[in-house]
Design a protein around this nucleic acid. Sequence first.
DNA 1: ACCTGAACACCGTTCAAGT
DNA 2: ACCTGAACACCGTTCAAGT
Lengths: 202, 202
Amino acid sequence: MTLLDTRGAAALTMRNIADELGCTQASLYRHVRNREELVTLLVDRALDVASSAPPDGMDWAGKAAWSARLFRAHLLRHPGVASLLRGTERLGPNSLAGVQYSLELFINAGLSPRLASAAASSLATFVIGSVHLNLGLDMSDPEESRHRRLLYRSRDAATFPLLVQHADTLAEVSSDDEFEVGLNALLTGFRALIQNSDITRD
Amino acid sequence: MTLLDTRGAAALTMRNIADELGCTQASLYRHVRNREELVTLLVDRALDVASSAPPDGMDWAGKAAWSARLFRAHLLRHPGVASLLRGTERLGPNSLAGVQYSLELFINAGLSPRLASAAASSLATFVIGSVHLNLGLDMSDPEESRHRRLLYRSRDAATFPLLVQHADTLAEVSSDDEFEVGLNALLTGFRALIQNSDITRD
DNA sequence: ACCTGAACACCGTTCAAGT
DNA sequence: ACCTGAACACCGTTCAAGT
């Protein structure tokens, strides 16, 4: 865990883990079948944020937004965890707690179990995908913004007119902005979905 | 390219590439700095679908949905490409063409360049994230659905009541369903955003 | 039961040496 | 300029041998 946070996902090798634990690499295979199994266990343990519930007094959309922001912030604080987060291994108890919670949220909001599941999945997909796509980048770094502006501006104006024209704007859009716009759009869409299924039910 | 499609991303090693090309691994470093640079070039070349535009006669939402589904289908058909798709390397000409196109779409729909960029990014994030989270899984495989049903049903009913109760429903929700629900919600949210900025402008 | 040392078959990358 | 052979420092995994 500390190894992953301090030296990154690339340094999470069986040898380094064994060193950190004070044993040989071969010993690890007494407690774990594969490296993959170890990663699965590690990732689920790292997802214990999902259990912290939003404060009371919010409607479902407020709670969903609160949880999504918390989850995203946690992943951004632990990029190593985020980079190991795939779809296959979301079976651990902490991940399941997250599924249970978001499912409850959307069902109580008025969605059918099927739609609630799809909505919760979509939201998680967006949060994880959002962190994933910005893993290498540090948007607060001014160097990064300058680099992107140059990339857009130096394109051929005939084939990429909009990129050249709005280079400055595009370079300035932070990943936080992107996330908020997408999160808001998703929740607005879910709200419409709930109203529609209410109408259908009447 | 054929190596990636036939034997997967794990088999995309410098040795295998060199074999496929009929040279030694060391020769590759005359044409490419890193393996990473090679992957970047390869991924961008694999994204040539972005250039195929949707048929005329659709509104912006229809076009966006059409492009998103096309992109997703392409990635699902080439899982190796999808697994290599990170955020850092979207600089290639094909990726930029996709950015230019989606930007044009949302600006013409009535969004400011800033919001259009965020909307386009969010949509791409959702598509890529959606494919990413289902990379290992084959939902059409009945074995997979049975496994998921068992996973949910065998949980502790006291801590995960909803998972146990709706195990059958949850196991049956396909990734296609999830994607359609999320896509629809996003586009509905963007539509509301456009109407809002129209009102603000008046 | 748990650990060790040593090996195996793989990686990406480098570099002197060839043509 | 481009390619080769051989090496380097790493991987994950296995296995007989120890306690």
